[in-house]
Computed example of a mutant assay.
Amino acid sequence: MQLKINGLPIAEYPSQFTVTTLDLDDAESSVRTADGHLNRDRIAIKRQIEMSWGLVTWAKTSAILKAMEPAFFEMTYPDPRAGDYVTKTFYAGNKPALVAVAKGSEILWSGLKVTLTEQ
């Protein structure tokens, strides 16, 4: 699998990788009628990517977080709907890194999770 952020390979491949296809509807014009019929106005189809990692070195954790630091960045990933690798512009939401553990003189982070949403 190939994952790139702004054209560069990701510092560490995630242990979990999920792509969700999102339908975005116009909130004002997408309504149900009194008989339950849905009048839907889909305005876009977007992607959301969820990634998580197990134990990762401090340096690689830092590199992952820094790569996703800009307000928007390009991500290349395998897209199940497209049936190929695609590059789209995303932003990252909260990025918790849950546990720091010491292994000798090295600090490892576990539980880093990132949710990316297409612009």
Score class of each variant (00 low, 15 high):
Gln2His: 07
Gln2Gly: 04
Lys4Phe: 03
Ile5Gln: 05
Ile5Phe: 00
Asn6Trp: 05
Asn6Gly: 00
Asn6Val: 00
Asn6Met: 01
Gly7Pro: 08
Gly7Tyr: 10
Leu8Tyr: 12
Pro9Asp: 09
Pro9Phe: 09
Ile10Asn: 09
Ile10Gln: 06
Ile10Ala: 10
Glu12Pro: 08
Tyr13Asp: 14
Pro14Thr: 08
Thr18Cys: 12
Thr21Val: 15
Thr21Tyr: 11
Leu22Trp: 12
Leu22Ile: 15
Asp23Val: 07
Asp23Leu: 07
Asp23Tyr: 04
Asp25Arg: 14
Asp25Trp: 14
Glu28Lys: 14
Glu28Ala: 15
Ser30Phe: 12
Val31Trp: 11
Val31Asp: 06
Arg32Trp: 13
Thr33Gln: 14
Ala34Gly: 11
Asp35Tyr: 13
Gly36Lys: 08
Gly36Thr: 01
Leu38Ser: 11
Asn39Arg: 11
Asn39Ala: 09
Asp41Glu: 13
Asp41Arg: 12
Asp41Asn: 14
Arg42Met: 09
Arg42Trp: 07
Arg42Ala: 07
Ile45Lys: 10
Gln48Asp: 00
Gln48Glu: 05
Ile49Phe: 05
Glu50Ile: 00
Trp53Ile: 00
Leu55Thr: 11
Val56Glu: 06
Val56Asn: 06
Trp58Phe: 09
Ala59Met: 02
Lys60Gly: 03
Thr61Leu: 01
Thr61Pro: 03
Ala63Asn: 00
Ala63Val: 03
Ile64Pro: 03
Leu65Trp: 01
Lys66Trp: 03
Ala67Gln: 01
Ala67Lys: 05
Ala67Gly: 02
Met68Trp: 03
Glu69Ala: 04
Pro70Lys: 03
Ala71Phe: 02
Phe73Met: 04
Phe73Lys: 00
Met75Thr: 10
Tyr77Phe: 07
Tyr77His: 01
Tyr77Cys: 04
Pro78Tyr: 00
Arg81Thr: 12
Gly83Asn: 07
Val86His: 02
Val86Gln: 01
Lys88Cys: 09
Thr89Leu: 06
Phe90Lys: 00
Ala92Asp: 01
Lys95Asn: 09
Pro96Val: 01
Val99Gln: 11
Val99Tyr: 09
Val99Gly: 10
Ala102Val: 10
Ala102Gly: 11
Glu106Ser: 13
Leu108Ala: 02
Leu108Ser: 04
Trp109Tyr: 10
Gly111Cys: 06
Lys113Arg: 15
Lys113Asn: 12
Gln119Lys: 14
Gln119Ser: 12
